[in-house]
Amino acid sequence: MSFVEAIAAKPVQKNRNERKLTIAKALNEAIAQEMRRDKNVFLMGEDIGILGAVWGYTGGLLAEFGEERVRDTPISETAFIGAAVGAANLGMRPIVELMFVDFYGVCMDAIYNLAAKSSYHSAGTFKAPMVLTTAVGGGYSDSTQHSQCLYATFAHLPGMKVVMPSNAYDAKGMMTSAIRDDNPVVFMMHKNLQGMGFLGTIQGAIVDVPEDSYTVPLGKANVARDGKDVTIVGLGMTVHQGLEAAKALEKEGVSAEVVDLRSLAPLDRDTICRSVQKTGRLIVVDDDYLSYGVTAEIIATVTERDIQALKCSPKRIAFPDIPVPFARPMEQHCLPNIQKIVAAARSMM
């Protein structure tokens, strides 16, 4: 179900006023609703209690659910993410938070060797229904260890779902799905979409969100804009850049379709291929590192299925294979942006 379809299909609420929320607020609502519904859902992480999480989505949960279910942890990621796996094995549904995706290096074993393989090497008996939340992305000069995306790093490792919403509607529905999922789900939040007071937010991420609980399925891409000449594939932040590029291209008579992946694992290959069958041209935009990444996977998917679908070579726009530099001129030069997408599309026409 696409974003548009989901909105169309949602139960009609009488006298419902439009309610625009940030992703942070939408996630907060999803988590609170699931915690009310299922007493096994609980939160662990650094600064999620009284602070309400650095990325702003756990405010008020401590007050409502108490310290037993909203647990500030020591800075001991190996311990508390490993603990989430054990707790999940015995019926709990932990949501574990780790501020920045960059920090997962210290506790990666608990993620990719424990959580991700728990079902497989126990033939489905040691389930690990847990959500790992983390923030990704740069563009605000936070340097080498606080600006990465690492989508491909996670999506490469079998056994966990890896998702990221591009707007608040999807955020709420996808978080609800993630909490109810019996598998580990890495739930990424893009900093430039989150709606934080200390950082700018792309306005397109702040959309109408129903009060009632609903789900958006994991593993389904969304056609965020219909077009016929070129397909622009992105996720999170790059979806919004794709949409802006599409607007600019429209003025030049180029009709661009924008696909929001929403989920990297599982990857909705059908929606991508269907779009390229229609447009014949493909640009993949990614703010993660270029090589061995999301762009390569999407292009391989399309060419493997039907290389004839392409009228010209596909293009990829991604962060070059260098650590994220601090100083603004260097970082901005490396990030994907609207101009780069427009130029790529033009060169394909």
Binding site: S141, S143, T144, Q145, H146, P323, P325, F326, A327, M330
Partner: peptide, 16 residues
């Protein structure tokens, strides 16, 4: 301040 004359030529910033 992210300048080329910096210790890491502006690649690192205050945390590094």
């Amino acid at each position: 301040l992210g300048r080329k004359a910096g210790l890491s030529e502006g690649r690192a910033g205050h945390i590094h």
